[in-house]
């Protein structure tokens, strides 16, 4: 780290200082998270509308989801949010090795989440509890139970894609960290990814009761 504070390597030419650059990145990411919330918001609306039209069917169908798998996944994601926060903390303190360990932990937990999701999905696919015209399961009372599974697969599926995206970005962070790209002065990408990861976690915390714990 031989650069002067006035012109560190990571400072782009059109910013006056590193503070302005970090602030811009942070605001940009918050707006991005807002668009994510709205993207899911559309699906939450869709869920709310069809649930209000078919409350009984939703209740009957939710019994076919595995609460224990869902609960395990909730815990897994919350812990991964913790490891992500610890990774940022370690970089602030300049402990690069710890950062790598915590980031790897986050990736590992995210993979655990996806594996559990895989077992849930394949079980449902096997039984025919599928969206729309693919649905062939019999034994759920109420009209159009396939709509419940449309919502389930759409929302958890979109969330799953976000987890996969997170895995890719955090893996990239691990490589960058081990190459020494970050320092206590500059760790914006880790911080930004942390915010993203917390949002992914938060969305799951909404999805879990909406699908698994319908009262």
């Amino acid at each position: 780290m031989n650069q002067t504070t006035a012109h560190p390597a990571h400072l782009q030419h059109h910013f006056t200082d590193a503070h302005q650059q970090a602030e811009s990145a942070k605001l940009g990411l918050w707006i991005f998270l807002l668009t994510e919330v709205l993207l899911f918001g559309g699906l939450f609306c869709f869920y709310a509308i069809y649930r209000s039209w078919n409350p009984d069917m939703f209740h009957n169908a939710h019994a076919f989801l595995n609460v224990w798998m869902g609960a395990t996944n909730t815990v897994v994601l919350i812990v991964s949010s913790l490891t992500m926060a610890l990774a940022i903390r370690s970089m602030q303190l300049g402990r690069r090795k710890h950062t790598i360990v915590f980031l790897s932990g986050t990736v590992f937990l995210a993979c655990v989440f996806m594996v559990i999701k895989y077992f849930e999905y394949s079980h449902k696919i096997h039984l025919g509890q599928l969206p729309g015209k693919w649905y062939f399961f019999e034994g759920i009372a109420g009209t159009n139970p396939h709509i419940f599974f449309s919502a389930y697969f759409l929302m958890t599926g979109l969330h799953g894609f976000h987890v996969l995206g997170g895995i890719a970005v955090i893996t990239w962070l691990i490589i960058k960290t081990s190459r020494g790209s970050f320092s206590p002065e500059y760790y914006t990408p880790i911080e930004m990814t942390g915010l993203y990861w917390h949002l992914v976690d938060l969305i799951w915390i909404f999805l879990f009761p909406l699908f698994y714990l319908i009262g």
Binding site: F46, Y50, P131, G132, K133, N144, H146, I147, S150
Partner: peptide, 12 residues
């Protein structure tokens, strides 16, 4: 895929 949410024939 035919998820059925806008399709009146499937309850959409």
């Amino acid at each position: 895929v035919g998820i059925g949410i806008f399709d009146p024939a499937m309850g959409g």
